[in-house]
Nucleic acid binder design. Structure first.
Lengths: 140, 140
DNA sequence: TTATATATAATAAAAATTACTATACAAAGG
DNA sequence: CCTTTGTATAGTAATTTTTATTATATATAA
């Protein structure tokens, strides 16, 4: 575990962010919980271990991480922003029944568009909605 | 113009929605303004012509239209949901400088994923972010 | 034309996010 | 190692976006 703390400390330093206890813990949480949690979820779960952790810290930290390109922000629904530590390009599928968000592999380089020639693309997102296999079989 | 009212009346009836004056006007606005407006924008713009139009009507109507699959909801940023009347599959590009949202053609049928086999897909979305050609040339 | 159900307007409430400020902590220099 | 300086945190208040509530108005069908 010492290893993880050192790894996150190094990464934060590299990005010009101070390796505070809270920041390291939030990175640790996101690594251990690749379930695309919302800020609210992160806060309520982490309060169990870090009772003094505050809402403002979570929001500010997540925003700082996104800006430093350490995290990806996922906006599928307007009423919840989700976060993930996985920076490798992939798509998302959100099940409308159980609410789970699934990852799926996708090669974004294949997607080239005439109409966007001359545009500078910084961020590519793809997400589907529907019902997952699990919920479909449960229905029968 | 009479023609448009009749067209929207028919469409609303077909979907089981009463063709009220407000609903027809909102459809008319979205047809004439394919700029992906937010609820707030629709409300403030339409108040010029329909001063008594209320926030609740706009939100309720837009939600009803999305549910009836007459409109598409675009969530690129968490703090603004945008709406468009164009139901033909396409992608979106949002310029981080000027804020404009551009459409681009895309054949979603090409996008098939092994990992989503057995999943029921109801909705496919793709959006990019970056800087548009217009803003890039202005910068020089 | 009247009865019935749904839609609207106006306001209040809710949920998510951001701003503010005093205190606490991390990094650098003596 | 201690002090200084700047940044981060916690707690709270404020903001923004969206939804709920309710009385009135409107559309449809008998």
């Amino acid at each position: 575990m010492r290893n993880a703390v050192e790894k996150f400390t190094l990464e934060l330093n590299k990005r010009g962010l101070r390796p505070s206890h809270q920041r390291i813990k939030i990175l640790e949480y996101l690594t251990n919980n690749p379930c695309h949690p919302t800020a609210e979820k992160i806060l309520s779960e982490m309060k169990k271990e870090l009772p003094t952790l505050s809402k403002s810290t979570v929001y500010k930290t997540l925003n700082a991480f996104v800006e430093a390109q350490m995290l990806r922000e996922i906006t599928i629904e307007n009423n919840e922003v989700r976060y993930e530590y996985n920076l490798i390009d992939h798509g998302h599928f959100k099940c409308e029944k159980c609410g789970l968000v699934y990852d799926f592999k996708i090669d974004f380089d294949i997607l080239q568009f005439e109409e966007l020639k001359g545009f500078k693309i910084n961020d590519k997102n793809i997400y589907f909605k529907g019902v997952c296999k699990n919920c479909l079989t449960k229905d029968i």
